[in-house]
């Protein structure tokens, strides 16, 4: 069985079917992209995977265990963390603190020990802080750790969201439009970073509109339109897929080529 297996997952809001029986699989260590026109249901799929919404039917299995409709924090605990399409940092916290929030779960709830700063607590705190600094260094925010999140430039904010998701100890990272609003230079850096995450053993699922990013780094692409999967395959297969071109451009491949 695949590392993450999504089977026939559906979700409707009132009468509107946002996601209708979507299935896909992600193998360990892969970079998988979900693409599709605006409003296709891509972010809804992320919300279903992370427990923000309950699914109406279907199953999500991660590492052999069903995780659908579990509480949000249990899914994070299982090893799935995400970033957001519209950045959701903690703006009035320092960069380092933003990452430490991601570690909250692992630090355990020792309120008394944190008030009285027992030696054990100090040691644990030091280790977590060290780890947070490492993560920030690896993503290129090493010089910003004491800055406030709200003061970061846009690209750095997106990076910080990824760092925070890594800090949860996630094995799968769901990145919702990581390249959105980035300039070409930043996009290239982002691709390099995503490749390095892959090399570190992370599994990644991306929602992305920037096709130059998607085509270069994806092992597999799923195309969603109107809540249903219309295509899947390797980047080269998707690039020439009639249904995909129709969904994006509203015409056939022939029309596109003849223009």
């Amino acid at each position: 069985m695949a590392y993450l297996s999504v089977k026939e997952v559906s979700k409707s809001f009132g009468g509107l079917t946002a996601v209708g029986g979507v299935s896909f699989e992600v193998e360990k260590g892969q970079v998988v992209s979900i693409i599709g026109p605006n409003g296709a249901g891509k972010t809804t799929i992320f919300n279903l995977l992370t427990g923000v919404y309950e699914i109406d039917s279907g199953t999500v299995t991660f590492d052999g265990k069903p995780i659908h409709n579990k509480p949000v924090q249990d899914i994070v605990g299982a090893g799935i963390a995400r970033t957001f399409q519209n950045i959701r940092l903690f703006p009035k916290m320092r960069v380092l603190e933003n990452v430490l929030v991601g570690m909250d779960r692992k630090m355990g709830y020792g309120l008394l020990s944190s008030v009285f700063r027992t030696p054990k607590f100090k040691k644990a705190e030091q280790e977590f802080t060290q780890r947070a600094i490492e993560i920030l260094g690896s993503i290129g925010l090493g010089d910003e750790i004491h800055n406030y999140a709200e003061n970061l430039p846009y690209g750095a904010k997106r990076k910080l969201e990824i760092a925070r998701a890594m800090a949860t100890g996630a094995k799968i990272l769901l990145l919702d439009e990581p390249a959105a609003g980035m300039n070409p230079q930043e996009s290239v850096e982002l691709m390099d970073f995503i490749s390095s995450l892959k090399n570190q053993g992370y599994t990644l699922i991306l929602i992305e509109h920037d096709m130059s990013v998607v085509m270069k780094i994806s092992d597999k692409i799923y195309v969603i339109d109107h809540g249903v999967k219309i295509a899947e395959g390797k980047p080269a297969e998707i690039a020439n897929n009639e249904a995909v071109i129709r969904a994006y451009l509203g015409g056939s491949a022939k029309d596109v080529k003849s223009q």
Binding site: T50, V52, V72, Q73, V76, G77, A81, R82, F84, R88, L89, F90, P91, K92, M93, E97, L100, V101, G102, D104, R105, M107, Y109, G110, L111, S114, V115, R164, A165, A167, T168
Partner: peptide, 25 residues
């Protein structure tokens, strides 16, 4: 300056993100 305080501030600034980063709301 405490871990609980950090979680409280996170919830204050962005409840949705706090939950999705594993904070026990």
């Amino acid at each position: 300056h405490t871990k609980m305080g950090l979680a409280m501030r996170a919830m204050q600034q962005n409840p949705k993100a706090a939950r999705l980063m594993g904070i026990n709301v």
